[in-house]
Design a protein around this nucleic acid. Structure first.
Lengths: 189, 189
DNA sequence: GGTAGTAGCCTAGCCACCCTAGGCAAACCA
DNA sequence: TGGTTTGCCTAGGGTGGCTAGGCTACTACC
């Protein structure tokens, strides 16, 4: 009875890659077991259930994305930082559609608080330092930024922009221009 | 052998309601069959497969939402219309989370072209008439608007805004103010 | 008003996936 | 060297998706 050397880390990584190839909804315990040359029941020694697998993919993705964003942000400020953040975000989502989709699942509060999600929040606020916004405008602006990024990437992926010929890259960069414009001139109450 | 009176329309409606209660991912042919007091195999007489069910929910939702938006837009223009559109969108998403989630599935091009999705596109462009934008700015603005709405609603639902105490309603109305501001003063190249 | 055809349901059965219980052997550790 | 833990196994039950083939109630037409 040779041991296959399965660990939670290896499982998570394989699951993430599988998600990018076939979609999160098709990441199955059985498929992973096959990949590791192991019976599916054996994976429950490492995993509580199938849901844990998706959560782990999500946490991995959050951490990876936070690293990328941090790297992109280094030494930049103002609109430069905004664009770098946005592009890092969008590029990651396009390179890793399955991981990105996994990121959208509902984490329970404790898990979310312990995740790399807090780093995202911090970095987003850091960008806004270049725009001199005070609370509560800052919170509203963070939420609007995040909404725009996620919404655009999400609609782009599900084909929501397909009916118009205009290249999405162009709309993306113009959207960032617009975002920079509102942040610079945030409307007062 | 009494007949249960199953039709595709009744199935779709029941599926949509089920989706709002338990989530689209839990809308199953078996569960629907139970609701109709019928064996699951019988539903394949009315349905090609489980995927068709979700597509039908999506098309129903698109049509319902288009109706709501059209009603909200009647007699309004400018920022008034923008806010009415946005609120109709967000309210629908919150009242019908399952239907809204179903709307995000990837429709194949022909189905999408024949859906109420085109009405949405037309209505969004109609709003922009109040802002005097010409192509290709108009397309970019439509995409940004849609991104913002979808992104906000989506993040709000999955709890992406939970870590900050500020009421999401407030951020929402400020986001609409900001959107109105950029549309009014769309940055030139 | 009988009868052919079809629409609507059924049973049986297959496959994939999720997950639990209980067993056995390899690796580790004293 | 023997005990404990770790990592895998088999067996088996539950749910869901879907196909094939059969029976019955309704419909339409002569």
């Amino acid at each position: 009875m040779a041991r296959a050397g399965v660990t939670v880390e290896r499982l998570t990584l394989a699951a993430a890659e599988l998600a990018d190839e076939v979609g999160v909804e098709n990441v199955t315990v059985a498929a992973l077991a096959r990949q590791f040359g192991v019976k599916d029941a054996s994976l429950y020694f490492h995993l509580k259930n199938a849901h844990e697998l998706r959560v782990r993919i999500a946490l991995l993705a959050l951490a990876e994305l936070a690293d990328r964003v941090a790297a992109a942000l280094a030494g930049r400020a103002g609109k430069d930082a905004l664009v770098a953040f946005a592009n890092a975000y969008r590029d990651y989502a396009r390179e890793h559609p399955g991981r990105y989709a996994a990121m959208q699942i509902d984490l329970d509060p404790e898990t979310a608080a312990a995740s790399a999600g807090v780093r995202h929040a911090e970095m987003t606020r850091a960008i806004l330092r270049g725009y001199r916004l005070s609370e509560p405008d800052q919170t509203d602006a963070v939420r609007m930024m995040h909404s725009t990024f996620h919404g655009f990437v999400s609609l782009e992926k599900t084909g929501g922009f397909r009916h118009t010929p205009r290249p999405t890259d162009d709309s993306w960069s113009r959207t960032l221009d617009a975002l920079d414009a509102v942040l610079t001139n945030w409307p007062s109450r």
